Amino acid sequence: MSRLPAAFHWTVPVRGDGREADPGRRPRGGWNPGARREFRPVFTDPRPGNVGPFDHLSAIGRAADVAGFDGVTVPFDPDGEDSWITAGTLLRETLWLRVGVEFPPAFATPVYAAKLSVSLQRFTGARLDWHLAVDIDPARRRALGDHVDGDDRYARADEFLTVARGVWHEKEFTYEGRFHHVLEGGFFGPLSGVPFPRVHLTGTGDAALALSARHADVHVFGLDDDLAEHTDRLRQAGRERGTDIALGLRVPVLARADAAEAADDLARHQAEAGRAAGPGAEPTGLVGSYDDIAARLAEYRDAYGITQFFLAAHPAVEEAYRIGEHLLPRLHAARTPAEASL
Rank of each mutant, 00 (worst) to 15 (best):
M1V: 12
S2C: 11
R3E: 11
R3M: 09
L4V: 02
T11D: 00
T11Y: 12
G16K: 08
D17G: 12
E20N: 10
D22H: 07
G24C: 06
G34Q: 13
R36E: 15
R37E: 15
P41R: 07
R47V: 08
N50K: 11
F54L: 14
A59K: 08
I60L: 06
I60C: 05
G61M: 09
R62F: 01
V66K: 11
G68V: 07
D70V: 08
V72W: 07
T73G: 10
F76R: 04
P78Q: 12
A87V: 02
G88C: 04
E93A: 12
E93K: 07
L97Q: 07
G100Y: 10
V101K: 05
V101L: 08
F103I: 02
F107N: 01
P110G: 10
D135E: 11
A143N: 15
H147P: 00
V148D: 05
A157K: 01
D158W: 08
V167W: 05
E172H: 14
T174D: 12
E176K: 08
G177C: 11
F179P: 09
V182Y: 00
P190V: 12
G193A: 13
V194P: 01
P195Y: 03
R198W: 07
T202R: 14
D206P: 06
A208V: 14
L211H: 05
A213M: 09
R214C: 01
H215S: 02
D217N: 14
V220W: 12
F221C: 09
G222E: 13
D226Q: 09
D226K: 06
L227N: 01
T231F: 02
R235A: 11
Q236S: 14
G238R: 03
R239Y: 06
T243V: 11
A246L: 07
V253Y: 00
V253I: 14
E261G: 13
A263H: 02
L266E: 07
H269R: 08
Q270R: 14
A271E: 15
A273Y: 04
G274S: 13
A277K: 06
A277M: 06
G280Y: 08
G288V: 00
D302C: 08
I306W: 12
T307D: 06
Y321Q: 04
Y321C: 00
H326G: 15
P329C: 06
P329E: 11
R330G: 01
L331W: 14
R335V: 06
P337R: 13
E339H: 09
S341N: 06
